[in-house]
Simulated assay, not measured.
Amino acid sequence: MKVWTDKCAYLSRRGREWLERAPSREVQRILVIRQCAFGDYMATRPFLVELRRLFPGAHVTLATVSTYRYAVPEDLIDELFVQETQGGLGAQWRSLRSLTPFDMLFDLADTARSRLLTFMTSASIKLGFPYRSLSNRLLYDVGLRRTNYHYEAEVLLDFLKVMGHKPRYPLDFAMPCHLGSDAERIIAYFPFASSSDKSLSFDAWRQLIEAAASTHVDYQHVLLEGHKAEEGGEFLAEVVARQGNVSVQPRMDLERLAEWMTRVSVLVCGDTGVRNLALATHTPTLGIFFRTLPYRYWPRYENFHEAVFLRDGATPGKADILHGLEELLLRLYPERELPRPSDEDGL
């Protein structure tokens, strides 16, 4: 196959020779290293779908570690390898040496553990996203420059573009798909994040949800509880008591959550795994960013995702978020537009 690279990529002589002489049908065993949390696993799904399209006969093994098991895309792979990281040095060494040789290895993580596994695993060709150029000559035959200014799921597909693959758009996550204009009049909110500095305070969320419920009275406003014990909706109890169109959705498992997400009109949340689940189901999202780079989690190939962030890096206020929500609902569901309470008051 032709190698589709230029000065944007590192390519070793061994890598070029192997790619040019190896027909895709001869690729029998592939290792994908991805040691990450919930949201990043969602972003990995299109890569695995397209990898299967490019190498339909290959046996695909996904390597992770025990701390990152939630939302592993086991439905898209043939085998899961969990690298030992908790035992003694002997157990960890045996774990590293337990994998048999592969035809291709993709390191999608670029962590200390993934680099060690890459080094210890035998493969005809190794491809990676090194943040440090030194890793190219030490570890990889193909090294791509990673950008965080494009949606993560698209960036991962660059590996397959090296081999001339044409990914399908919109990206295929192999997940339930949003109902579009038939979605229920539900605005969902997920006010939690992996760390508290990535999300608004509970008080800010309380004010936002009550204001949105008062403005968009024709919608149900539902706070979605998370799977952690501290991710409950108790802090919204007073708003639920005051507003008849505000409620709390109890915790759901991942499969039920994905199906439920396809029926809501829009999800409002910060940088969270739940937002990545919404992206994977093509559910409209309004993302709130102030700590993390928004572009990495903001697909631009679909017009129903919006990001609220301020150029000076300040935390978006209630007015900023409500304005973004208003514009997004109008763009997505223009047929639903009704006079707002403020409009009626002026008559």
Rank of each mutant, 00 (worst) to 15 (best):
residue 3 V to N: 01
residue 5 T to M: 13
residue 9 A to W: 03
residue 10 Y to H: 09
residue 13 R to K: 14
residue 15 G to K: 07
residue 23 P to Y: 00
residue 24 S to P: 05
residue 36 C to K: 13
residue 36 C to G: 05
residue 40 D to L: 03
residue 42 M to F: 11
residue 43 A to L: 13
residue 52 R to A: 02
residue 54 L to E: 00
residue 54 L to D: 00
residue 60 V to D: 02
residue 62 L to H: 01
residue 68 Y to N: 13
residue 68 Y to F: 10
residue 78 D to Y: 00
residue 79 E to V: 00
residue 82 V to E: 05
residue 99 L to Y: 03
residue 112 A to F: 13
residue 120 M to Y: 10
residue 132 R to F: 05
residue 135 S to I: 00
residue 136 N to H: 15
residue 138 L to F: 14
residue 145 R to Q: 11
residue 146 R to L: 10
residue 151 Y to V: 01
residue 158 D to L: 02
residue 161 K to H: 02
residue 166 K to W: 05
residue 169 Y to P: 04
residue 170 P to C: 03
residue 172 D to F: 14
residue 176 P to N: 05
residue 180 G to H: 06
residue 182 D to K: 07
residue 183 A to R: 09
residue 186 I to L: 11
residue 190 F to I: 08
residue 190 F to Y: 14
residue 190 F to D: 00
residue 192 F to G: 02
residue 195 S to K: 10
residue 196 S to D: 12
residue 210 E to A: 15
residue 214 S to A: 11
residue 219 Y to S: 04
residue 224 L to E: 02
residue 227 H to T: 14
residue 230 E to R: 13
residue 237 A to V: 11
residue 238 E to S: 15
residue 244 G to D: 11
residue 259 E to I: 10
residue 264 V to T: 09
residue 275 R to M: 08
residue 284 P to D: 13
residue 287 G to I: 04
residue 288 I to P: 04
residue 288 I to F: 04
residue 298 W to Y: 14
residue 300 R to E: 04
residue 306 E to M: 12
residue 310 L to N: 13
residue 313 G to Y: 02
residue 313 G to V: 08
residue 313 G to N: 03
residue 314 A to S: 14
residue 318 K to A: 06
residue 318 K to Q: 12
residue 322 L to E: 00
residue 324 G to N: 01
residue 327 E to Y: 08
residue 330 L to G: 14
residue 332 L to I: 15
residue 335 E to D: 09
residue 335 E to H: 11
residue 340 R to F: 09
residue 346 G to I: 03
residue 347 L to H: 14
